[in-house]
Each structure stands twice: as structure tokens, then as C-alpha cells.
């Protein structure tokens, strides 16, 4: 009974999911479950395997190994069934430059067999929802980056998807546009749409996601709720000391503090830092020490390292 109920509430279920391109293992044996009406995030440095995972969920790529079920169907067996019921916002803009804003929606709706009056109504409704109605006659070229993003989201909602998949929905947007998109996604979530997103912005993930995974080199490094992850891996606060001196390291080690070091800074975690903060800032200079709230970004950097990724 319990299992039956669970599988009904799972929008996505992946077990041992893998994808290899030749010798490169882009996604390596990952397990995850996305529950109905939740927002699930994929975080990770470039080349971690986020987009490959999303492309498998969207039935663009077949998994090389493992099980992947979307809306209760196997992606290998029922791609058409799945694609009919999900909405996909790709990373790159693939709006149709040959068509106007409203025709982009109408032509796209037709791929879902939404035609005639119904297509017009649905397009209009979504143009209003995304604040693009005044631009309906414009060409794609005339839109700003933020408007294009919003139009892509509007397009992905035409078929009233049960699952909305967004690959870096706010990359390259100005703060206004980003907040506007967050607002709309929040609204959709409240209305009951299940959302899956990848992002490089930790603030975005912390704000929107109920559950997230951090991926690195094709594997899931950690999974959890944003707040719990911060608490578990960093604590509530973090201290940064701008210094490259050995005596800082000696001091931190002497006090048994957990820290990371790069050429210019020390990053100190753990519960003990609150009590030691006055002493630290005294000792190493107020100007060079910062005490701040821990964020998801700290978790991310701690778990995936600070080195740049080739990709």
C-alpha cells in the first residue's frame, strides 16, 4: 500500500541512472526522487552532469544505464507520453526567430494539438501571465534577454505541464528580470506545478527549492533541504579572514576549528566560531575579518572545492 502511494506521488524516479558519451561518464549511477508539487534543484559546477540529467528527463537523450521514470512512465518506452505532459525551458534560447511573439506560442501550441480558439486563448493568457502581452506583435529580435526568458517559460506552460523542467532559467539576466522570474515560478509552484531546475545561483536554489542535490563529476555529492544542508555542513555562520599568514592557520588548528584556505582568505565554519569571534577579530584585525550568515554557496564550495572546472 505504502509503496503504491509513494510511486503515485513521485513525479520523477531515478535509480542507478547513468549516461556515457564514449569514454566520458557524464552521469554516473545517480538516484533521486522528485515528489509531486515540490521544487527540486540540481546544483553543480559546469560539467557536473546537470544538463545531461535534464536532457534524459526531457527524453532528448536515452540513459545508457539505470532506471528513469517520469510521471510513472519509463523514458525509453514512452517518450511521447512524457513529452506531451511536461514543459521544458532549455538553457539556450531556441525561440523561433522566423515568427512573432504570439505566433511562437501558437505554432508551439499546435505541436501539442492545441489549435484554433483554444490556442489563441491559452497564448493570450500566458502572455498576460508573463507580462508580455504588449509585445505580442514583436519579433524575437526585438525582445530583451529577460523577455526572451519569460517567453520561453510561457511557451513551456502552453500544455499545462504537470512537471516544469528549467535549465538555468535566470542565467545572464539582470536582477529585476531574475526576481520577476522567481516570482512567477513561486506562483506556479503554489498552484501545484512540480518544478525541476538547474542553477548556478545559490540564492535562487535556496529561495525556490524544497529539495536539492549537488552534483559533481556525474555523481550526487549531497542531497537535502537547503536550510538543513547549510546547518549540517557549515553551521549558521561563517568567518572569513583576509590573510595569507601562517599564524592564522596555527591559531585555527590550535582551537580545533574547521576551516578552508585559499591564497588570500581563510574560511572558518562550525558552531564554535560565534564564541571565538570577538577574539578572532581582535587578533587579526577587524578590517580583515568578517562574520556573516552561512549560505548555500558556502556548502557548494565546501563540497565541490574552490578549483576552477575545465568544461
Amino acid at each position: 500500500m505504502g509503496i503504491m502511494k509513494n510511486s503515485e506521488e513521485n513525479i520523477i524516479h531515478a535509480k542507478g541512472l547513468s549516461k556515457a558519451f564514449g569514454d566520458v561518464q557524464a552521469v554516473d549511477q545517480i538516484d533521486f526522487t522528485v515528489k509531486k508539487q515540490s521544487c527540486f534543484g540540481f546544483l553543480g559546477p559546469n560539467g557536473a552532469g546537470k544538463t545531461t540529467t535534464i536532457r534524459m528527463i526531457s527524453c532528448f537523450l536515452e540513459p545508457s544505464d539505470g532506471v528513469l521514470e517520469v510521471l510513472g512512465k519509463n523514458v525509453k518506452e514512452s517518450p511521447r507520453y512524457i513529452k506531451e505532459r511536461i514543459g521544458i525551458c532549455p538553457q539556450e534560447d531556441n525561440l523561433d526567430p522566423d515568427l512573432t511573439v504570439e505566433n511562437n506560442l501558437r505554432v508551439f501550441a499546435r505541436y501539442f494539438d492545441i489549435v484554433g480558439k483554444e490556442a489563441n486563448l491559452r497564448s493570450e493568457e500566458l502572455l498576460h501571465f508573463m507580462g508580455l502581452f504588449s509585445k505580442r506583435k514583436a519579433t524575437i529580435e526585438e525582445l530583451s534577454g529577460g523577455m526572451k526568458r519569460r517567453l520561453i517559460i510561457a511557451r513551456s506552460l502552453l500544455n499545462r505541464p504537470k512537471l516544469l523542467v528549467l535549465d538555468e532559467p535566470t542565467t545572464g539576466l539582470d536582477p529585476q528580470s531574475r526576481h520577476q522570474i522567481w516570482e512567477k515560478l513561486q506562483q506556479l509552484k503554489n498552484e501545484g506545478t512540480t518544478i525541476l531546475l538547474t542553477t548556478h545561483y545559490m540564492e535562487e536554489a535556496a529561495r525556490l527549492c524544497d529539495q536539492l542535490v549537488i552534483m559533481d563529476q556525474g555523481k550526487i555529492v549531497v542531497e537535502g533541504e537547503p536550510k538543513a544542508l547549510i546547518e549540517q555542513h557549515i553551521g549558521s555562520s561563517i568567518v572569513e579572514i583576509e590573510s595569507d599568514q601562517e599564524d592564522v592557520e596555527i591559531y585555527l588548528k590550535a582551537h580545533g576549528l574547521e576551516f578552508e584556505r585559499n591564497p588570500t582568505h581563510f574560511f572558518i565554519y562550525g558552531r564554535a566560531i560565534m564564541s571565538l569571534w570577538p577574539e578572532i577579530s581582535q587578533k587579526f584585525g577587524e578590517k580583515f575579518c568578517v562574520l556573516r550568515m552561512a549560505t548555500l554557496e558556502d556548502v557548494f564550495l565546501k563540497l565541490t572545492g574552490r578549483a576552477l572546472r575545465e568544461s
Binding site: S58, F60, P79, R80, K83, E84, I88, P90, E92, D93, N94, L95, D96, P97, D98, F108, Y111, F112, D113, S156, N159
Partner: peptide
């Protein structure tokens, strides 16, 4: 250049 195929593939079309 226009990624039209990519867009169409995110619909029921194969």
C-alpha cells in the same frame, strides 16, 4: 543556428 529542432523536440514530436 535557430535551434528549431531542439524546440520542437520538447513537444510530443519525435
Amino acid at each position: 543556428f535557430q535551434k528549431t529542432y531542439d524546440a520542437i523536440l520538447s513537444t510530443p514530436l519525435m
